[in-house]
Nucleic acid binder design. Structure first.
Length: 279
DNA sequence: CGCATTTCCTGGAGGC
DNA sequence: TGCCTCCAGGAAATGC
């Protein structure tokens, strides 16, 4: 499930392959994967050159000349790869963009179709407005900013998963960060003491940075821009480890449901506690 | 407002 | 082997 570290890894891989390249023909096999500006996608992007590739939240952003951008959301099972032009086309490949000078293709494949591609035009200001509903980048948050985001009476995990608040965390990294910070996912965000808030921000940063270093988590479908798996799943301490011992205290990891998501906790390390009443 | 539930979609896992 | 059901989850919509 591509979250921030996976999308960052994909974006970095694409950057190396795409920056400075001019795009050629576009083969759109499933038209409902593309949204945004009207008009034939091919006509809109053919001949444009890739200026920059980066990540915003869980989205890959490919900036093209002429003030237009391709935004790709990988959903659950989306893969963006650059392959030799003649490589066999896998099932559920919805979009191919030829890179003529490199004799390669950018391919977008998404079996479960939770992802999508947006073509945005009209220059940076217009595009910025369209992306303005995305929340803050977790790796850029300061402690005071994080504190202010947490001043709401919401389950902490539900808040962390809310992309309009913080953009980039998904189920895996929420569970891993809450475990490392020893916070119960159902704890109310506005009742966490400052030391817990500090610890949580630190845990989020550490988990995300380690996961980026390991090139993401390949639990099921995730592959990077070169088709390779990530390695961070080997460092998961709670996610997908129901029944196995907590790395800290050996208590069995338990799976509960929070915000409609399966959630993995150590019942001993992550106890629900309420703040003592003020006297 | 917040939270639970449902929807979209498909492949893989497990039951029989 | 084959068929069925269930499950995973990001995000948006709906209901309470």
């Amino acid at each position: 499930m591509p979250e921030l570290p996976e999308v960052e890894t994909v974006a970095r891989g694409l950057k190396a392959q795409l920056c400075g390249r001019t795009l050629g023909n576009v083969h759109l096999m499933r038209s409902d994967t593309v949204h945004g500006e009207p008009g034939p996608l091919c006509a809109m992007i053919r001949g444009r050159t890739v200026r920059r590739v980066h990540r915003r939240g869980k989205r890959v952003v490919i900036e093209l000349t002429g003030g237009c951008e391709l935004i790709i959301h990988l959903g659950m099972s989306g893969q963006l790869t650059v392959v030799p032009a003649g490589a066999p086309v896998g099932t559920h490949t919805h979009l191919r963009i030829v890179i003529p000078a490199a004799d390669r293709e950018l391919r977008y494949r998404d079996p479960r179709r939770f992802g999508g591609v947006w073509l945005l035009a009209g220059g940076p200001t217009h595009i910025g407005r369209r992306l303005s509903s995305l929340g803050r980048e977790p790796l850029e948050l300061t402690l005071p900013e994080f504190r202010s985001l947490l001043r709401r009476r919401r389950q902490i995990k539900a808040l962390l998963l809310d992309q309009s608040v913080i953009s980039g965390l998904g189920n895996i990294y929420c569970d891993e960060a809450l475990y490392r910070a020893r916070i119960h996912p159902l704890a109310s965000a506005d009742r966490l003491r400052i030391d817990r808030v500090r610890g949580l921000l630190q845990a989020i940063r550490r988990v995300l940075r380690s996961a980026i270093r390991a090139r993401g988590s390949s639990v099921r479908d995730y592959r990077d821009a070169g088709g390779a798996e990530g390695g961070y799943q080997r460092q998961h301490q709670v996610y997908g480890r129901e029944g196995r011992p907590c790395p800290r205290c050996r208590t069995g990891i338990v799976r509960i449901l929070v915000a409609g998501r399966s959630t993995h906790i150590c019942p001993r390390c992550q106890q629900r506690r309420t703040r003592p009443a003020a006297t």
